[in-house]
Computed example of a mutant assay.
Amino acid sequence: MLTTALSVLMEGEGMAEEPISDRLRDRIRRDFPDPDAAKGIEGALWKLAVELEDSLQSPERLLTAAVVIADGDVDRFRSAVRLARTDWRDLLMAGGRGHEDWPSVLDEELRPR
C-alpha cells in the first residue's frame, strides 16, 4: 500500500518508473527484517531518488549504494542519505559503485541469498 501511494505521489514529480527494483526491495527486506524499518527505508529511498534525479545516474545504482553502506543499520543509512545529498559521487564511491565495474558489483550485491 505504501509503495502504491508513493507511486502515485512520484508520478506528479516526473519520475518515469519506480526507482526501487524488485531485487533492491529484496535486499532491503533482507538487511532490514523489521517490516516498519523496511518501509521507512523504502520511503526514504523514494525521496532520495527524486532528489538525485538530476544526476542522470541509475537510481538502482545510487540507492543500492546507500543500502550497502547501511549494512542493516538505520543510523548508517541516515548517514549514507546525508552523504548522497552532499555529493552523490561520494555516495557511489563509499558504496563501491563508483568504478566502471559497477554493473557487476551491483549484480553481486543484489543477487538472491
Rank of each mutant, 00 (worst) to 15 (best):
I69D: 02
G96N: 07
P33Q: 12
H99N: 10
V105Q: 08
R30W: 13
M15C: 07
L56F: 11
A80F: 12
R23Q: 06
A70H: 00
D31A: 13
V68Q: 02
A16T: 13
V105E: 04
E17V: 05
D22H: 01
L62W: 10
L110Q: 00
L2F: 08
R30C: 08
A38Y: 09
G95D: 05
T3M: 10
I20A: 01
I20P: 02
G95I: 00
E17I: 07
W46S: 04
L45N: 00
Q57W: 14
L62A: 06
G43N: 01
P59I: 12
V74T: 13
E42N: 02
M93L: 07
D101T: 06
D73F: 11
L63G: 08
P35M: 06
D34F: 15
D87G: 15
V81M: 01
M15N: 12
R89S: 12
P19E: 05
D31H: 15
L63V: 00
D71K: 08
A70S: 14
M15P: 08
R61Y: 08
A65S: 15
E60S: 11
R76D: 11
R76S: 04
L110A: 01
H99F: 06
V81E: 03
M10P: 03
L24E: 14
L45Y: 02
P59M: 11
I41N: 00
L52G: 11
R29V: 13
E51I: 15
K47I: 05
D75S: 12
Q57L: 14
D34R: 13
A49V: 04
M15F: 13
L110C: 00
